[in-house]
Simulated scan of single mutants.
Amino acid sequence: MDDKTLQVGFVGLGMMGTPMSRNLARAGVGLRVYDADADRTRTVASELGVAGVVDPAELAACDVIVTMLPTSAIVRSVFLNGDGALRIPLRQGTVVVDMSSSDPTETVATGRALAAFGVRLVDAPVSGGVPRAADGTLAIMMGADDEDAAALAERVVEPMSRSVYRTGGLGTGDAMKALNNFVAGAAFAATSEALIAGRQFGLDPQLMIDILNDSTGQSFSSTHVFGPHVVAEKYASGFSLPLITKDIRIARDLQRGMGRDAPVCEAVASSFEDALDALGGVDHTAAHRFWSGETR
């Protein structure tokens, strides 16, 4: 089977899923797309010139099904009923590639349930945000227990990625993604705290960002997020506060489950949870406004 004859289903056409599916369409695979929002499915399918399906069961003929969804519980619900039976009549040998930011323990459990039906699960969460989803340069962290499944998954994700890191067994990609987003969240929270203190002391916020980006305090957040979204007060990075909080909680719970003392992760999770409780489903950059006292 070459890449042009691969039949690929893509589930989840949100901020990340739509540009990711666009890159798959450009690669020329046989693509079917699905979203719980039927209007979104029709719009994206029409834009890409691919098949849009109204029922996930229509993906049963696909060789590979990619998911890009908010939580691992939702990923599981696409494929399995509450009693563990298959919701979609998948063929034995089908590969499911979950590119969501999922809970690694839930991913392992879902993988075991699917394996009972001969379906192979690969976790392949991504990093890079909407801009890198659009230009096909995402960093992908891939965990798998089945080498053949991983090899097929790698062929499918290649048009969406700049680099694929094989992290180990099933669930390790999700663990790496959660830990990465904890580090990113910590950098965002620390940069916010510094900007709030600096502004109070009389420093110009944009000048502070310029200096951080030319100094040892530089991070992805300071380089790509703070100037256009915090200093400019746009708060529209495309990554929501509920999602980053979820990922940091996963990292915290992972460390708790291993019996580790993780004071930094605990503090970062608490800070984001406080902002989420106050602000709800806003862009994650708006947490800066809450921490600065603007929204209280």
Score class of each variant (00 low, 15 high):
Arg91Asn: 13
Arg26Val: 04
Leu13Trp: 09
Ile65Thr: 11
Val157Lys: 00
Ser222Cys: 11
Thr295Gln: 01
Ser100Pro: 04
Phe272Cys: 04
Arg76Asp: 09
Leu24Tyr: 02
Asp204Arg: 09
Thr191Ile: 14
Ala124Thr: 12
Gln206Met: 15
Ser77Lys: 08
Arg32Met: 14
Leu59Arg: 02
Pro263Asn: 10
Leu212Ser: 03
Asn181Met: 01
Asp261Ser: 14
Val29Thr: 13
Ala178Met: 12
Ser100Val: 07
Ala124Asn: 09
Ala73Val: 14
Glu193Trp: 09
Arg26Leu: 12
Phe290Glu: 04
Asp204Gln: 14
Ala115Trp: 02
Ser127Asp: 06
Ile196Asp: 08
Trp291Phe: 10
Met20Ile: 14
Leu31Gly: 02
Asp135Cys: 15
Ala197Leu: 15
Asp63Arg: 01
Leu13Lys: 12
Ser222Lys: 06
Phe226Ser: 01
Ser270Pro: 00
Glu58Thr: 08
Gly9Val: 06
Asp123Glu: 08
Trp291Ser: 00
Gly30Val: 09
Phe201Ser: 12
Glu106Gln: 13
Gly118His: 10
Asp253Met: 13
His288Thr: 08
Val33Asn: 02
Ala267Val: 02
Met15Glu: 12
Met16Trp: 07
Ser72Pro: 00
Thr105Ala: 12
Met99Ala: 15
Arg22Glu: 13
Leu86Arg: 11
Asp55Tyr: 11
Asp103Gln: 10
Asp274Asn: 11
Gly28Ala: 07
Ala73Thr: 11
Gly143Val: 07
Arg22Thr: 13
Asp174Thr: 04
Arg76Glu: 15
Leu203Lys: 03
Ser163Thr: 09
Phe226Asp: 03
Pro159Thr: 08
Arg166Pro: 05
Gly136Val: 08
Ile140His: 02
Thr41Trp: 01
Thr71Ile: 06
Gln7Ala: 14
Lys4Ser: 13
Pro89Tyr: 05
Gly198Pro: 06
Ala45Gly: 03
Leu212Lys: 00
Met208Pro: 03
Val54Phe: 02
Pro242Arg: 05
Gly84Leu: 03
Arg40Lys: 15
Pro125Gly: 08
Thr223Val: 12
Ala73Leu: 05
Val78Cys: 08
Arg256Leu: 15
Val97Ile: 13
Val282Gly: 00
Asp274His: 13
Val54Asn: 12
Gly202Thr: 11
Val130Tyr: 03
Ala175Trp: 00
Leu152Cys: 07
Met208Gly: 03
Glu147Leu: 13
Arg199Ser: 13
Arg76His: 07
Leu179Glu: 02
Leu6Thr: 05
Ala197Met: 15
Leu212Phe: 15
Leu212Ile: 13
Gly143Thr: 06
Asp148Pro: 05
Ile248Tyr: 00
Leu6Asp: 04
Leu121Val: 10
Gly52Lys: 05
Met16Gln: 08
Leu243Thr: 13
Gly52Glu: 10
Gly293Ile: 07
Ala186Trp: 06
Ala286Val: 04
Arg289Met: 12
Thr43Cys: 01
Ser270Gln: 12
Ala153Lys: 09
Pro125Asp: 03
Thr223Tyr: 04
Leu152Arg: 13
Val230Gly: 05
Ala278Asn: 01
Asp261Cys: 07
Met16Asn: 04
Phe10Leu: 08
Gly143Trp: 09
Gly118Pro: 11
Arg32Trp: 02
Glu147Thr: 14
Val75Ile: 10
Ile244Cys: 05
Ala251Trp: 00
Tyr34Ala: 00
